[in-house]
């Protein structure tokens, strides 16, 4: 039921987005677009930048930019794809500009907690596994997370979209505007790096 409601909200937002694009930007219409897509845009950005505060700020930037460019939205792709493309480019630009501050963010992340909100680095583990398996899994998880942090912005975005967001190569091509061959090349380097980082976590 909740899924159906969300879908209806999105469809209404698509109609609102098209209407906004044709007739000028209406505040109420735009708010419906924001309401329908803010979670998915936040999640995409968070998968790439892996910093909740930055993801929240970049989500705002994404909608601000979308508002500025809504008149140029021709409906050739879906509104979600168009917003996703803006979000990915913003996240990439952020990573490129903030690469030097990576260690500071990494050190802060494990203890980070938005007041009253869940901790970002926690969760995701299978509670039913034995303590030993859980320990090994957490070690592998930490290594993968650190390896992903060390990827170049492009590699990281491609890796996150493919393996965290389940984008197909074609969807990544559309979202990032790069060729499939380039995407595969980024994926190859990213996976090789992450694979190397996991060596020694098999727990013999």
């Amino acid at each position: 039921m909740a899924e159906l409601t969300a879908r209806l909200e999105r469809e209404a937002a698509i109609a609102a987005g098209s209407a906004s694009a044709k007739t000028g930007v209406d505040r109420a219409h735009f708010e419906r677009v924001v309401c329908a897509y803010q979670k998915s845009i936040f999640r995409i950005i968070l998968q790439i930048v892996r910093d909740p505060d930055q993801a929240a700020s970049l989500t705002q930037d994404c909608f601000l930019r979308a508002h500025e460019r809504l008149k140029s939205f021709r409906g050739e792709s879906s509104l979600e794809t168009w917003l996703g493309r803006i979000a990915i480019h913003l996240a990439l630009d952020h990573l490129k500009s903030r690469r030097a501050g990576f260690w500071r963010r990494l050190l802060r992340r494990d203890s980070h907690d938005v007041a009253g909100n869940p901790t970002f680095a926690g969760g995701g583990m299978e509670e039913s596994a034995s303590p030993e398996r859980q320990l090994l899994a957490r070690e592998a998880l930490d290594r993968v997370r650190r390896a992903v942090e060390l990827l170049s912005p492009q590699q990281r975005a491609v890796f996150a979209l493919r393996f965290f967001e389940d984008y197909s190569l074609e969807e990544i091509r559309e979202a990032m505007g790069i060729e499939i061959g380039t995407i595969k090349s980024h994926l190859f380097r990213a996976v090789r790096h992450v694979r190397r980082s996991m060596e020694g976590t098999h727990g013999k």
Partner: peptide
């Protein structure tokens, strides 16, 4: 590991 990272963000 990648699935857990994805779930972490989603969660």
């Amino acid at each position: 590991a990648t699935g857990q990272l994805a779930r972490q963000t989603l969660g």
